[in-house]
């Protein structure tokens, strides 16, 4: 406890405030879950009858199913490219001289600083000229660049906190630079790489601004399909089912990452203690 400014009552009030705020942050996302398992068309939070019929629509209706499959493929494709490029970029920045590293950091962070709409229009005008609108690979490449920072940030953070002596040890034992990278650096970065991959995947799976420009008439991604449903008044209950699936996937991914990182951290601490004694 490092709190000295508030009295006992002040602390209680602060904790109550915090809990209320967490409820404000978390609960709105959760109201869709009970609505999605209600049997009838109404949007009540406590449904009269339970059924999974809106999830069946998601899998049986061709348009929804195709959108779901397309978005899964797109997120996988773009996240893999972003992960390879992001990990290489993070390692490169950590090895570059301070001035160059600073410039590269600004360069690589730019895709999440520049508004999505601006990047989207940029891609749209270029792709329209090159007749690439409505094709899978160009859309995937555009997503890959947008989500590259999501991979780079956790990997860079991990590189900063890594013990450089591990790499020196490998080098002094005769391992070449690439061998050191593959056998020493990459395994140590694994938790951060997976976290980055998950962030990238989640972002691509939810991205609608750039996708609506680049997907053309044929490629309908899941967020675009949802967007259309919401624009029509949001009365299609399948949207609540899709949202629930998205929420569960994202929450599961985050939970696994957090638990895994905590375990990795405690294992690291344990092995350090062993080495010290």
């Amino acid at each position: 406890m490092n709190e000295y400014l508030l009295g006992q009552n002040g602390r209680r009030i602060l904790i109550a405030y915090g809990l209320l705020l967490i409820i404000f942050i978390v609960v709105p996302a959760l109201v869709l879950v009970p609505i999605s398992i209600g049997g009838d068309d109404s949007f009540v939070i406590v449904p009269d009858s339970l059924s999974l019929r809106w999830y069946e629509v998601l899998l049986q209706d061709a348009r929804w199913r195709n959108a779901l499959v397309l978005s899964l493929q797109l997120a996988t494709f773009s996240s893999i490219i972003a992960t390879v490029a992001g990990v290489l970029g993070a390692i490169g920045i950590s090895r570059a001289s301070p001035g160059i590293a600073k410039a590269l950091r600004l360069f690589f962070i730019a895709p999440i600083i520049v508004p999505l709409m601006v990047v989207g229009v940029g891609f749209y005008v270029l792709y329209a000229r090159m007749r690439l609108v409505g094709s899978f690979v160009p859309l995937g490449m555009a997503h890959a660049v947008l989500i590259l920072p999501f991979v780079m940030l956790p990997v860079s953070a991990r590189l900063y906190s890594m013990d450089p002596r591990l790499e020196w040890a490998a080098a002094s034992l005769g391992a070449g630079p690439y061998r050191t990278m593959f056998k020493v650096t990459l395994p140590l970065l694994m938790p951060a790489i997976l976290a980055g991959f998950a962030f990238a995947f989640i972002f691509s799976f939810d991205e609608v601004v750039v996708a609506q420009f680049l997907s053309g008439p044929r490629l309908e991604t899941l967020p675009r399909r949802m967007w259309e449903g919401i624009q029509m008044g949001g009365l299609e209950k399948t949207i609540t089912a899709v949202s629930t699936v998205q929420l569960i996937l994202a929450a599961l991914a985050m939970l696994l990452i957090t638990i895994w990182q905590r375990r990795a951290a405690s294992r690291g601490a344990a092995s350090r203690r062993q080495n010290d004694s």
Binding site: I22, I25, V26, A198, D206, M226, I230, S243
Partner: peptide, 24 residues
């Protein structure tokens, strides 16, 4: 628990959360 909730909510779909505000 609050930190974990915040981290999870950062990763939740913006589209889904915006949609749920309509219903609320």
């Amino acid at each position: 628990f609050m930190i974990l909730s915040l981290l999870i909510s950062l990763s939740l779909s913006v589209l889904a959360r915006t949609y749920s505000w309509i219903i609320i």
